[in-house]
């Protein structure tokens, strides 16, 4: 009886060792298999890396340069925007939803532009502009400020022709 149980014990340990070995091999093969097919499975989600501007540039300077061939008399011709600090931010932010005609044809005070932004956020799904809001407001208030046109302007830009 005792011998038999000893034999059984040895056999049991052997089985255990074999099972463990098989398990390790199986796990390793599954790992290799998944790694081949889904190499990014255990990698963290890619995050957006913030652009770090050159230390010589002020923070408001944007992350891309306008093509100088597109600029005529201080106007960025493809969009019609006045070239100034914040121009690119306006291009990217405002131009996301609507054409920039809607910027260039309007005039408002800083408060007026702020109200327009708030209206778009409340009703038109504009997102939080974060620190860009100041840059954008500075640009708009400076370059697209209202002028006092009185109760009626002169008729302007008449192109004369013989009737």
């Amino acid at each position: 009886m005792e011998e038999l149980s000893k034999k059984e014990l040895v056999l049991k340990q052997a089985k255990l060792a074999i099972n463990f070995g098989v398990g390790v091999i199986a796990f390793a093969s599954i790992w290799v298999f998944q790694f081949t097919i889904f190499p990014d499975f255990f990698k963290p989600e890619p995050t957006i890396v913030e652009f770090i501007p050159d230390s010589t540039e002020p923070e408001s300077v944007s992350y891309f340069e306008l093509d100088s061939a597109d600029i005529e008399n201080g106007i960025h011709v493809p969009t019609g925007l006045i070239v100034d600090d914040g121009c690119q931010d306006v291009m990217v932010t405002c131009g996301a939803c609507h054409s920039l005609d809607l910027v260039t044809q309007n005039r408002a005070t800083r408060d007026g532009w702020k109200e327009i932004i708030v209206w778009m956020q409340e009703t038109q799904k504009l997102w939080d502009l974060g620190e860009k809001e100041v840059v954008i407001l500075d640009y708009l208030a400076k370059n697209y400020a209202p002028e006092n046109t009185g109760r009626r302007k002169n008729i302007e830009n008449i192109e004369w022709y013989n009737l």
Binding site: I48, V49, E50, F51, S62, Y63, F64, V77, P78, T79, G80, Q88, M91, V92, C94, G95, A96, C97, H98, S99, L100, K125, W127, D128, L129, G130, E131, K132
Partner: peptide, 26 residues
């Protein structure tokens, strides 16, 4: 388009195509 990462891009709605920079806009 801008040749680099966009600041505050995480706030940009997923469904949108930015139109402001379309070269044929004019």
């Amino acid at each position: 388009i801008v040749g680099s990462k966009v600041v505050f891009a995480e706030n940009f709605p997923k469904e949108l195509e930015p139109v402001g920079l379309q070269p044929d806009e004019v």
